[in-house]
Every structure is written in structure tokens, then in C-alpha cells.
Design a protein around this nucleic acid. Structure first.
Lengths: 461, 461
DNA sequence: AAATTTGTCTATTTACATTTC
DNA sequence: GGAAATGTAAATAGACAAATT
């Protein structure tokens, strides 16, 4: 029985286990989840200490801890020794960011899509390919090692991102997300921890949550991952690896300094953790910085993909995996896909080696520059981060409105945006910001209309 | 300290924990794994009771149990209350069945591939498609709900397999394996159990092992899953679902009776478990039986794929998911792929709705019939199961040779086969049999040569 | 049919490490 | 910089249930 009455103490959460179905820890986890989902426990709330909860419920601390762990692996909570247990800020935000059906008249500036300039040339290229005499083999099973030139093409693509891997290290996947999932599934077990930026690519969050892999935010310094914080996490949190987007970070658009890249590489080597370096957006940058992989090639899995920047329908990505991790990632890719479509693989590779890719990139850069200029014109009074060649921006909100509230406000006015909350990791405090995709509206007119609406809303804040 | 000396008792395994790195349960699991991999503990070996091991090591039973659990989730062990803990028969068999590089002069009769008849017509169809005016959209992102006709095509394909789902239930995946992984990842958590045939599709085994999902074999009766055994597993093993291949089962080639289909459907309904029905090979059958899904439409996830029977490069599968599971599977597919390639999706759908698929099927059936006739001619003295239209056979071995030994023997003689051991689940006893793929050799001559070699080997046994 | 063997699961004990104040 | 607060993780105890004899 509880030693004290808790009637007088203010506790942020008072669960009941009366009608609970055994086992205790699952009943408690269930109630916790419900209360968060219902809104009884708001994001950011600090729960009572686990010992106090245990005392209140007259059960053991470990039982409470186990219940919290269940919710933590679902991404609902985040607990730190010494500090306490907190409801995650993104507990109520949906990180599945695909517009399954876009209502008419809604201007899409949420999901990140490239402009459509490459679609036509890709069709043309594919037509040529199919006219060649040995085209039939494109529907056969492709033996990965029979096509070394595909790997050479991948190397060529990665070199644009500042990394020059050994062709032997290349594996193939159905796009960047597919690669991320394979890497996590192959290198981590349930309950393992991965470090990430306090705001990160939402697809990492959803996959990690599905696999029961815990994301630990690594504190930032100067807008990029802090070396000290990373060392701390290696020493104390037992993280197995980290996930990085050094070029044009999604969603914050930050490009990491060369010094920090090197430091992070060194730390990874010293502590034996792996780095997942996602080169999703690097080909749109005009400037090439050395990849983190170039400083820690035995630790870094480098992902180069084309679907996000060139064409969503070109579902191919190349993954360079250091020898020690290769077998595990290769097996995971087998489990996810058996193999990739030779048609996509060959098309992608030909676009790269033919030099056509360079034209594509220039076109996309020019289109993005035009679109960004428009965004700048409308939003010059606000802080709106992002390179001129990027396809999304990170809009810091004026006043005191939260990202979520602005997202809702914009949606009511016909523009879809995604709030910082959707990207936050663990108990990180979400920035008051939204991600604004400038590539998604099909025409410049539609983009301009969206910007006009947003400016009006911002001016009213 | 141990109460008794165990020097005199014969124990099948005597681990040491002297030089062990903490924690205990992981050290024990590591040693167990090593001893299995090294061959100190042979497949099928019964370990000493966990209590006895605990006593011997002077630790708690639960610690031993936890160590065994770790190995069990890796597929190395299988423990049953009352019976004991056994080394899995497939602990040493590799279930990753793709020939990454095929040595010259090796005749491939291991991996299951269709013959190449459809590749050319697919190329032609694709060319036509690309000449249409709106071809560009094939490289855009495809909004799943914007293309209802794709779902109608999927329904049409499934109807050939004896199931007529609601088009709303259709989701898209990058092939059958991709679908299986998404279903498991979406509907199960780490540690959950799935029932399967004692020999089953090896891709299910590798995925389950990666995700930490435990496969429980359901005893057979008359060559198909026994209803009583399934009820037992529902009641006692707490299985979340089962995986079935009712038509032309891989690897045993068995086609399930209609009565058993119905019974299994009823049991699934009664106990609230889901059924994964893999229709990988049904389109090659001349006969159509009602799918299990047609008896339990609210419980059954039906997979219809074309890559295994038509063309490995056509990486598309359609999944019909009942309402209650749809959101979870859809999210998992998002995590695995974001979306499928519209190009593949549209090509697949057009092949179906245009009726071209029927021609393809007839061709493949005719080719398979020709190849099977050849196999029958050579192997008429042996039990070699399989329909005349199937693309693999299940060869029961004469004498007392095991599948693994015969696989090794055949490989030494230039023919790749896959032994029953690669397909066994849990502690099921592997049949003395091998799977023989008759579609994989590129020419009839090569097939004949392979068969000649095999016949000679069999005659010598 | 009852007793025994055997694995499983939850809640607890206990030692520990980090963060906060 | 030391004490208190706080979460974590392994090992254990003990009740339980299925399979075997």
C-alpha cells in the first residue's frame, strides 16, 4: 500500500490500474499512450519521477520503467537519467508526410518534390534503351556482380557528393528510404539506439519507430551536430550509430562545415559507431564539400539517391557500405526487395555515365533558383533559410506562434506546410518553424499564389 | 555453487562462463551460437533442460532462458514447454537463396526463376506505353488514390487466384518479398509469433529472423496444415497470424484442398489471427480453387505478384489488406519504399487489363509443361512432386541420404539444388528432399544436362 | 488421470550511472 | 564538488502452463 497519500501533492499524471488487464506494465503503457493521444498529457509534459509513480501505484520502479520503455520505443516518451521522463514534442505530430490524396485547390508546399523538368528526357532516354538489341534482359533477374559498370556509375554519382568509394562497396536499393530501412534493419536490433539531429528527416523517425530502434537527439552547436554532445552520447547512451544529412539538411537546410564533418568522422572512428550519411540533396548544391564518409570511410554508409531531386518515379539509390557492415546490409536489402529492377538500375546508371545527369542538375538548379527568388521576394521580411538551389526552405516564424499552429492556419487558408514538430527527435524542443517545399507546386503561378497567402498570414501575426 | 557434481552426468552441452564478458545471458547466448556454428552442437541436438544448465552454471533459470530466447529469435534454437530446447535443423543452412555470382558451368536449378518468354513482349508493351502523350507522368510521384484503375487491375489478377477483393483494399509493393516484409513489420512487434508450414518459403524465414519475429511450425496432415495443430497454436502459442501458400506451395508443390482452406479461414476468424496468403504461383495453375481469403476476407492479406512467375524484373506485387490491418501495412510500405515506381505499376496493370497476361500465362504453362515432361522422363524412377505447369519440383530422395548431403553432392557435380533444410521452420524435422527449379536453366539442353547428372547421382545412391 | 518435467513470463531486488542542484 | 534525484539493466524469485510420462 502507498506509504503517503498523494492527494495533496500535485502530480502531473495520476494513472489508475483498477480495471487494468494484466500484465501491469502493459496496462500502464496502454494508459500512458491513451492519455497522450487523448491530449490529457500534453507534449513536453514532465511525468512524475518513476519512483513516485511506482509508490503511488504501489508497484515496483522497474515495472514503471518497463512501461515507459514501451512508450519510448513507440516515440511517445523520452526519458533521461537525472532529468526525468517527458512526453515527446512530436507525440501528436504525424511524421508520415505523403499527401495520399490532395484536395483540389490545396497548394502543396508540404511534401518535397522536385520540379518536373527531367521527366521528359528520362522517357526519351528510356525509349532509346529499349530499342537496343539486348533490352530483354532488363526484365530478367540481375546478378549484382555481373554488372560492374552499374557500380562505377554509382561511384561517379557519389564523387559529385564529395566521396570516392571503392566500387566493391556499392549496393543497390529502391530509393533512399528503402536504403535507410535496410541499413537500420540490418545493423540494429530492437532496442538499439541511433543518434540524430534534434530535427531530422521524418522518414527516419517512422522507420525507427516501426523497428523499435530508439532515436537519441544529439545537441546542436552553430546549427550542426555538436562534437561534445556526440562524444557524450557515444560514452553514455551506447548509441550504435548516427544519421546525418550534411548537405542541405532536411528540414533545416543547413550545410555542415568541413571541420565538423571531420570531427564527427574522427569521433565515429574512435568510438566504433557507424554513420549513415544521407546524400539526398547534395547534387542540387553548387558547391561540393568533402563528405563525412571521406573522413571515416570504414565507418560511413553513404546513400546517394536520385528520386528526391530528379524524379520521384526513378526509384533508385546507391549505397556505399564499408566492408564490416556490408554483409548485414546486403542481407537486409535482400529481405526488403530480393533485388532492384534492372530497368531502373540501368536507366539510372546510363543517365549518370552519359553525362546527361549534369544537364538535369543544371536545369533543376536553374528552376530552383527561379522559385527561390520568388520566395525571397515575398518573404523578405522574414527569416527563411535555404540555398538558392534548394527545393525546400525553413521558415522561422515571427511572434510566438508554434509551427503546428501555423501549419494548421496555413492549411485552413489552402496551403499545406509541415511544422517543425513533425521533424523533432526525442525530447528536443521544436523550433517555431515550418518546412516549405518550393518545388512541389506544379507551376510558378501556383507557387506564387501560395507565397502570397503565406505572406498575408505572416503579416497578420 | 552447484549442488551436485555434473562430471558423471552426460550433458549434451557443457558451457563455460569463465572468460565471459558480462552480461551473463549474452555471454551464454554468444557461446551457444558459436558452438552451433562451429558444429559442436549439431542440428537436432537436445540441450540439457534449462534448469539443469542453470544449476550447472550456478545461475538462475531465467538467465538461461533469456539466453536461449536470444538464439531462438535468431532461428538457431527452438524451445517447447514440456519437451525441451533443441538446436534447429536449419541452424547451419543458409536461407538466403540468391546466386550472387554463378560460376561458369554450374547448372542453376536452385533459385526459382520463370522462363524468359515474357521478357520480349514486356519490352514491346513498355515501348508502346512510352510513346503515349502523357508518358512523362510515369516518372512523377504517383498518388495511390488517383489511379483507381490500377487497383481494378489488381483485383482482376487476384480473381484468377480465386479471390475477389474490394478495390479499396489494394496496396502496392515492390514484389512479393517486399510485401511480406511490410506485412510482418507493420503487424508484428519484436518477439511476436507467426505460424508457418514445417517447410516454408525461405524468404519468410530470413525476414522474420531479421525482424525478431518467431516462426512456429504448424504440424501437417495429408501434406497440408492441420486444423487441430493450428487451433493448438492459437490457444497456446499466442501466434498473431499465419503464413500460407495454398497454391503450389514453395517448396513442397502441394496445393491445399478446398476443405482445409475453409477450415483454416474459420479458425482464423474464431481466434482473431491474420492470414498472409501468398499467391506467388497460382497463376501458373490450370485449375483455380477459391483462395483462403475468400473464406476469411476480414482476416486475410492476399499477395498477388508477377515477378516470380512472369519476369523477375517486373518488380510489382499487389496486396489486398482487410480494413482493420490496412493502415498498419500501408505505413510499413511507406517506411520500406515511400511509393512504388509508377512505371512498373502502370506496366503491370496494363498487361493485366489488356488481356496480354493470359497469353503470357499460357506460354509459361506450355514451357513449364515441356520442361516438366523432360524432368519426368529422367526421374520417373523417383518420387518427384509437382504439377506439370509448376516451375519447381520437390524431389524426395531414395535411400537414407539427407537433403543437405545431396545438395552438396549435386553441387560437386555441377548442379545447384536447394535442400529441404533451407526451408525448415523451428524444430521441424527436414524431409529428405531437395527443391529442383526447372525454369532456371536458360535452355532445354541445359536443363536436360542437369537432369542427366541428377539421375546418375540418384541411381548411385 | 495424476505427477513430473520443462519452458515462460512478470514483477522484483539490487547495483549502478548520470544529471541536477 | 558532493549529495540527491532519477532512470537503467541484469539477475532473480516465483507463479504458471503445456507436454510428457
Amino acid at each position: 500500500m502507498p506509504v503517503n497519500s498523494f492527494e495533496d501533492y500535485p502530480m502531473s499524471w495520476k494513472p489508475t490500474l483498477n480495471d487494468a488487464v494484466k500484465p501491469l506494465y502493459l496496462a500502464l503503457a496502454r494508459q500512458l499512450e491513451q492519455d497522450i493521444k487523448k491530449g490529457n498529457l500534453l507534449p513536453g509534459t514532465k511525468l512524475p519521477p518513476q519512483r513516485e509513480l511506482a509508490d503511488f501505484l504501489d508497484i515496483n520502479v522497474s515495472t514503471v520503467s518497463k512501461a515507459c520503455k514501451v512508450c519510448e520505443l513507440k516515440g511517445l516518451l523520452s526519458a533521461t537519467v537525472g532529468s526525468g521522463t517527458f512526453v515527446s514534442f512530436d507525440a501528436l505530430a504525424n511524421a508520415y508526410l505523403l499527401p495520399d490524396d490532395k484536395p483540389r485547390n490545396l497548394i502543396e508546399m508540404g511534401a518535397v518534390f522536385p520540379d518536373t523538368a527531367s521527366f521528359g528526357p528520362l522517357i526519351d532516354h528510356l525509349k532509346e534503351m529499349l530499342n537496343e538489341s539486348d533490352a530483354e534482359k532488363l526484365f530478367n533477374y540481375s546478378r549484382p556482380n555481373a554488372n560492374l559498370w552499374l557500380k562505377d556509375a554509382a561511384v561517379k554519382l557519389m564523387e559529385k557528393g564529395g566521396f570516392s568509394p571503392n566500387p566493391d562497396s556499392i549496393l543497390f536499393s529502391n530509393g533512399g528510404q528503402n536504403a535507410i530501412t535496410a541499413i537500420l534493419a540490418g545493423l540494429c536490433r530492437h532496442g538499439d539506439k541511433i543518434g540524430a539531429d534534434p530535427h531530422t528527416y521524418s522518414g527516419l523517425k517512422t522507420t525507427a519507430s516501426m523497428l523499435g530502434i530508439q532515436l537519441t537527439p544529439i545537441r546542436h552547436l552553430d546549427g550542426e551536430m555538436d562534437a561534445e554532445a556526440l562524444i557524450d552520447a557515444c560514452k553514455n547512451e551506447n548509441i550504435k550509430g548516427i544519421y546525418l544529412i550534411p548537405d542541405n539538411h532536411n528540414p533545416t537546410t543547413h550545410t555542415m562545415s568541413v571541420e565538423r564533418r571531420q570531427m564527427i568522422g574522427e569521433i565515429a572512428k574512435e568510438y566504433g559507431i557507424f554513420i549513415i550519411e544521407d546524400g539526398a540533396y547534395h547534387i542540387l548544391s553548387r558547391e561540393t564539400r568533402p563528405a563525412v564518409a571521406s573522413f571515416a570511410s570504414e565507418q560511413t554508409i553513404y546513400i546517394a539517391s536520385m528520386s528526391k531531386t530528379l524524379a520521384p518515379g526513378l526509384r533508385m539509390a546507391y549505397v556505399s557500405v564499408p566492408e564490416s557492415y556490408r554483409k548485414a546490409v546486403s542481407k537486409a536489402l535482400y529481405n526488403l526487395n530480393i533485388s532492384v529492377s534492372p530497368l531502373m538500375a540501368v536507366l539510372g546508371a546510363r543517365v549518370i555515365v552519359s553525362g546527361q545527369l549534369d544537364d538535369f542538375i543544371k536545369n533543376h538548379q536553374n528552376n530552383a533558383t527561379r522559385r527561390n527568388a520568388l520566395a525571397n521576394a515575398y518573404l523578405c521580411d522574414y527569416q527563411c533559410r535555404g540555398d538558392e538551389t534548394g527545393i525546400f526552405r525553413w521558415l522561422l516564424l515571427p511572434g510566438s506562434i508554434t509551427g503546428s499552429d501555423f501549419e494548421a492556419l496555413a492549411l485552413k487558408n489552402g496551403v499545406r506546410l509541415y511544422a517543425a514538430e513533425r521533424f523533432t527527435v526525442g525530447n528536443s524542443l521544436p523550433s517555431r518553424a515550418v518546412r516549405m517545399s518550393i518545388g512541389a507546386p506544379e507551376t510558378l503561378e501556383e507557387l506564387e499564389q501560395g507565397l502570397r497567402i503565406l505572406k498575408k498570414l505572416l503579416d497578420q501575426i
